[in-house]
Design a protein around this nucleic acid. Structure first.
Lengths: 338, 338
DNA sequence: GCCCGCCTTGCAAGCGTGTGCAAAACTCTC
DNA sequence: GAGAGTTTTGCACACGCTTGCAAGGCGGGC
């Protein structure tokens, strides 16, 4: 396959169609004025030659690349990957395209990757990274990008913040535990101290207190299956063993469930009620059958993308810059008396 | 945040540094000739002004965008998402950036998204989509992109094909089953009939035949957990119940395991030996503890990205255009006598 | 028939960058 | 100090596209 001269340019299309280059350009610009007959000739020539608008050049002129940058850590995690999927799908629907930046490595490579993204003049960035790297957000904003923050609560100007009703959800699960007759409550958290995780924790503790109940809170590691197992060790070896655990995340819940059953030989939900958060695929697998809260992934993606598509003036955008979505409780078998 | 005039151009940097614009350009072009003193002045000015090379313009000039397009279906799947993660990481390491194209929808939107990617003049595409859409590959190639196919065996010119030793792996798991004393073998497959899935099936059947054993083959649905459950129904309700099942995929295996235990009350590995393929996270969870083959995700990513980085001449590239990697058997508790 | 207004079209400038070419500056040797 | 050789630098063109502007074409109302 020869290297040089692979792509067709608008000029060649114009020559073949017998029109000017501008006509070709206008044909592929929605809303531009071009006569039906001219358009037909251009489209025909373009098709024959295999012409594709050069988005690099167009972005250069329009000062609008059509690229949206997804900045994400732990992207192989079930929840994150389903969010990425929904976002890319929605972006494609609106004619934009997703660029993926992995921020797992905490060394300079993150910064490097981000700078790389800025070089491409992305129109916007969507941050679904748990890391509280405020500097990342700053850099994006300073580059004139629009910014969407998912499950974070940085207080930035001109950004869209999407969050769930984590506190209220925590209250609802408490009610369920109480109704199931649980008395010794626990909350299993990672110690990442992400805003959303802490909201669930605080919401749960507060709701319990309102019922005159105390909560044992344990925090450990990242939000992983393995952390869940360790949290189970910490919680289930106590002299007064909890009979209900709300896990900040489904992954934690899965680890905790496995440890409870296989290491401590407990039955769920008879000996122990468990709830999680995210409604990842595995929560519905029959080994877990976990009662949990569903992340409205599609709604989040839709909200983010349509905000990006909006050509609102800054003032309006400002006032609409925060969205709270509802996390629906999904009843399964890990809490008594559904 | 004002809309106009956000990005700094090389010209402004040049003016501030008191040099020509070319000097700025050369400073940020590796290997270009520029005096140390000039470079210092330029870097200083660039830093002060917050200058970032406009990759759109650079791509336009160099005819090389630095973008690599990841074309993927079922991206929220554990295996796929871990591969995406590895690939984006590797790409970032070599200064390239990943663009994500979701091909789940089988309507025209796929084609649209792909066309979108072509418009960005991606240097290469990596296809990890199970779909046998040969037209996609053709379109990429015709646009002069380099192409990497993972776990597919289309016979295209000038592409890199990365596969595993699926057949051999299947042989190894058969040996394990035989050594465990299993006699009634089965293979659980999706009916996607992807090359790699079929290679595992054929390899298993052939190896069994070499041992004078027959294999019950059952195919159903996509490679999902739910399909695994259904395959369990089909296999375990037989009059002569299999005592060993090789599942084409870990997801299938998880579904099959859950059904075997919870619906058929079988013990694994006592009543039934099970093996999977992919070594997804969940395979190591104690509810599954699945013996399986690990996908060398990092190695695959490394192979793909370094092939893309290579400036080999076409002839050499041609001869190196197919790589077979080794899938290592990961021993866990779902086969007797590890 | 003429004038006015609208739709369409071509021209040309510009977006921010890379790079060949020739001039300029510098280094070194004799 | 002169000349040859090597860097370094600036100029200007090119990349493929959008778009303001003005000119051309066309039809309608008088």
């Amino acid at each position: 396959m020869a290297q040089g001269k692979i792509y067709v340019s608008a000029l060649e299309v114009a020559e073949r169609a017998g029109v000017s280059r501008s006509a070709v350009s206008r044909t592929f610009t929605p809303g531009a004025s071009v006569a039906p007959e001219t358009r037909r000739k251009v489209v025909e020539a373009a098709e024959a030659l295999g012409y594709h608008v050069n988005q690099l050049a167009r972005g250069l002129m329009r000062n609008e690349s059509g690229i949206v940058c997804l900045i994400v850590s732990d992207m192989a995690t079930p929840y994150r990957s389903s969010l990425i999927k929904a976002l890319t799908q929605q972006l494609q629907n609106t004619g934009k395209i997703a660029m993926l930046v992995n921020t797992d490595r905490s060394d300079g490579s993150v910064d490097l990757a981000l700078r790389q993204a800025i070089r491409y003049r992305a129109d916007a960035s969507i941050i679904l990274s748990g890391l509280p790297d405020k500097s990342i957000a700053d850099l994006c904003l300073k580059s004139g990008q629009r910014l969407v923050l998912i499950n974070r609560n940085d207080d930035q100007e001109g950004t869209l913040k999407i969050n769930l009703d984590d506190r209220e959800a925590a209250g609802r699960v408490l009610t369920a535990f109480v109704r199931a007759g649980c008395e010794r409550l626990a909350f299993a958290n990672s110690d990442a101290r992400t805003p959303s995780l802490m909201a669930r924790e605080d919401g749960f503790v507060d709701a319990a207190r309102a019922h005159g109940l105390d909560v044992i809170v344990e925090r450990f590691g990242g939000t992983t299956y393995e952390s869940g197992k360790i949290l189970a060790q910490k919680l289930l070896t106590r002299s007064l063993r909890p009979d209900a655990v709300f896990c900040a995340t489904d992954l934690l819940a899965c680890g905790l469930l496995d440890a409870a059953r296989h290491q401590f030989s407990l039955s769920v939900p008879e000996d122990l009620c468990v709830a999680g958060f995210d409604d990842i695929q595995q929560a519905s697998w029959s080994s877990y059958d976990l009662t949990t809260f569903s992340q409205p992934v599609e709604a989040i993606a839709l909200e983010a993308v349509s905000w990006l598509a909006d050509e609102m003036d800054p003032a309006v955008r400002q006032s609409h810059s925060s969205r709270r979505l509802h996390a629906e409780l999904v009843w399964r078998g890990s809490i008594r008396g559904g």
